[in-house]
């Protein structure tokens, strides 16, 4: 059976959920061979094996953290040369897309980004994508070279499927471009203790209607009562009420949770671009004409300062 390269997104050996979802998709087209780079790479093997990786290629070098993107492209290319896979799958993070794109140029392959589903097809893997702020769904293929495809989080279920997961060291030689862009300092983000926005099953977002940084507490309280991640519209971010890392939309994160709750958000096209594929959508807005109501499964026309605390109280009461 053909092998499929899967690029592993991990933090010091802890594999992030989108990579496990990729393994589910990879098994539809072949046998997953994982590529894990950097500190803790070998520690990823156990969980990758549980989810279907037949092999885990690992490499660590200071270049991976000291320079931007290109060292990782060199490593992924080394893995590509070693395996000659039927496809290369990479998580659709900002960095993942850049790594995938540069690899695609080097190996003379077409690239598909931000797939939301993947199936085997007669002429190679068929990717489903959302276009024009998710108002269209397209099906595409790579027609030249080995398909390189990046896949969004929450596009497939995580499935257990035990495989060997044999660890093999990957030999990497860095090219002249690898050290072109130096990372002179790195400030890690402080953890909020809440789920990762793109991976969360429930997202609770606030917009301009929240009317002040101090009021975001009521959005956070609702989120915590549901074990949800917190999102924000660009208007709320631009006003400085909530960090940009939490922005949902075209120029923020694109989320696809089971449940999305929008409070004080009008539902502009650029916001919808990042949340329209959510399974269930709920909105609270005092303007009955707000476009967000076109998307909702359930909407409450009312003042969020009344509705949200009441909702949070009721959830807490029901959960006991």
């Amino acid at each position: 059976m053909a092998e499929v390269l899967v690029y592993v997104d991990h933090v010091d050996g802890a594999v992030r959920k989108p990579t496990l979802e990729l393994l589910t998709l990879a098994r539809r087209i072949g046998e997953p061979v994982a590529v894990a780079l950097g500190a803790g790479a070998e520690a990823t093997a156990a969980v990758l094996a549980e989810h279907g990786a037949v092999k885990v290629l690992t490499a660590d070098a200071p270049e991976f953290t000291e320079y931007l993107v290109v060292p990782k492209v060199d490593a992924l290319q080394a893995a590509y040369d070693a395996v000659s896979p039927a496809a290369v799958l990479v998580p659709s993070s900002a960095e993942g897309k850049e790594i995938a794109a540069r690899l695609a140029v080097r190996i003379g392959s077409g690239i598909i980004t931000d797939a939301i589903d993947l199936e085997a097809g007669d002429e190679g893997p068929v990717a489903t994508q959302a276009a024009f702020a998710a108002s269209f769904t397209t099906k595409s293929r790579v027609s030249k070279g080995t398909p390189v495809i990046t896949v969004k989080p929450n596009s497939a279920p995580v499935e257990a499927a035990a495989a060997a997961g044999t660890v093999e060291a990957l030999a990497v030689t860095f090219g002249a471009l690898a050290t072109g862009t130096k990372v002179t300092s790195r400030t890690p983000r402080e953890s909020t203790g809440r789920p990762e926005l793109t991976e969360a099953a429930i997202v609770v977002s606030g917009g301009r209607g929240v009317n002040g940084a101090e009021n975001f507490g009521i959005i956070e309280e609702l989120a915590d009562s549901l074990g949800a991640a917190v999102g924000a519209s660009r208007a709320a971010v631009d006003a400085g009420w909530y960090p940009h890392t939490n922005q949902v939309g075209q120029t923020g994160k694109s989320v696809s949770p089971q449940l999305y709750i929008a409070s004080g958000i009008s539902g502009a096209i650029q916001h919808r671009a990042g949340m329209q594929t959510s399974k269930t959508i709920v909105a609270i807005n005092k303007d009955a004409e707000a476009p967000i109501f076109d998307l909702v499964d359930y909407g409450v026309v009312g003042d969020l300062f009344e509705v949200v605390p009441q909702l949070t109280g009721e959830i807490k009461a029901r959960k006991g």
């Binding site: 609270i284 909702v296 499964d297 909407g299 026309v301 009344e306 949200v308 009441q310």
Partner: peptide
Amino acid sequence: GTIVKDEGEGGK
């Protein structure tokens, strides 16, 4: 979807 107007019980 269902859209309700808050008459004091919207959250519930």
